[in-house]
Design a protein around this nucleic acid. Structure first.
Lengths: 222, 222
DNA sequence: GTGCAATCTGAGCGCAAGCTGAAGGCGAGT
DNA sequence: ACTCGCCTTCAGCTTGCGCTCAGATTGCAC
């Protein structure tokens, strides 16, 4: 059910952070420090998407990109230096599906990975819960065919909850997925959940359920 | 069927406590005081997961972590000093799947070990008993396709019983696994078992069976 | 059947978890 | 420079979970 993501990143700290953020968003993740066993990984792990650093020991990101394109249908998100405009062009022209410049916020990378997977049809782009429709690609939320105005943060929060629909997600998970934070500030999440509720639960129906001591779930009324 | 866990911890008392807690949760456990024969253990015992102390005589946890990563697909949960933020980063960056800060509650460690094993696909994340489905990862319990609202404690209790399905577990085992307690308070367990029953056994069916003098079993009607 | 121990369960209390209105701060747009 | 809207912090309030206790009930030994 959940998509598989292969992360190739030689900076261990970054690779680990990326991996755990993706895992917390529900993906199955493998992390490699270089592209040596890429062919094997493509065959065995069969990733739906590869997060690929440009600067790598041995074969660099662009060479690996070609390998992936030749022997797999996996999507590719490249990590490049923020200012490296040439890198960016080269990556896109080489066929990467998206790229993210370093330094980046974890939430941004996760969002782009999700977006590419959706585009590739690996993940549904719109999620329906009750009479609420969340279209992550279009960034539009509708309730009973009427559009709902959400702020950027509220939208990211709701899109995340929608992607995890039916699962209980902790405030910690939400913080890393939506904000990219590591420090624990439950109230920040509470405030925004409260705001989202005010907007999407107009008729006394409950969509975002609180599970005390665990977190929140997005689910239609039972 | 049951997963194998290797515990490397030089403090004997802690190692023993961890080992027996894991055994009570149904894992096959080996305990070593240092990492000298790690390579042999990886080959012979073939653990699915290694619980690894950071501070060890001889090679320390991070060195052992590398060995494990190179020559095994085992998951790794590291034990670090609670405040050791540097440790934490280093552990994750080295590729540990999770870490637990000392001092820790046994229940927490057991929960994290289970979570990592699930993520690695070594343990099914959902257990079905009769028409009851317990999804530990999603934190969701369904009966006949309808979600059941459980509190955090009730869920932990039921997840534990589900993991031990078909096996009689004593109140002492439940206390250590779910609460991390050492002192014996049978009534505490009884109260929560009672609450879980009220919620999951709506039609007079019995799922959590009492075995007088021994404990409880989760099992479909006999 | 009788007695005793084990188990069940309803009630209530204390407190941590969660909610929300208000206000400050910051950045974007004019 | 000013305005506007959004994000975040804070503080007081509310909620309901988890624990303890006590009386009822069950099951087993004899």
């Amino acid at each position: 059910m959940s998509a598989r993501v292969l992360v190739i990143e030689d900076a261990e700290a970054i690779g680990a952070a990326v991996s755990s953020a993706l895992r917390e968003s529900g993906y199955e993740v493998q992390h490699r420090l270089d592209g040596r066993q890429l062919e094997t990984d493509l065959g065995r792990f069969r990733p739906d998407l590869v997060v690929l650093d440009v600067m790598l020991p041995g074969r660099d990101g662009f060479q690996l990109l070609e390998v992936i394109r030749r022997s797999s249908g996996a999507g590719v998100v490249m990590l490049t230096a923020r200012d490296g405009v040439p890198d960016r062009l080269r990556g896109l022209s080489g066929g990467a599906d998206d790229y993210v410049g370093k330094p980046f916020v974890l939430a941004e990378l996760v969002a782009r990975v999700s977006a590419v997977l959706r585009r590739l049809g690996r993940t549904p782009s719109t999620v329906q819960v009750g009479d609420l429709v969340v279209d992550a690609d279009a960034g539009v939320v509708m309730r009973a065919d009427r559009p709902i105005e959400l702020t950027a943060t509220e939208l990211r929060l709701l899109v995340y909850l929608a992607a995890q629909r039916g699962r209980v997600v902790s405030k910690t998970q939400i913080l890393t997925a939506v904000w990219g934070y590591e420090d624990y500030d439950p109230n920040l999440v509470e405030v925004h959940v409260s705001a989202v509720r005010r907007k999407i639960e107009e008729h006394g129906t409950r969509l975002v359920h609180t599970v005390r001591g665990l977190g929140y779930v997005l689910r239609a009324e039972e």
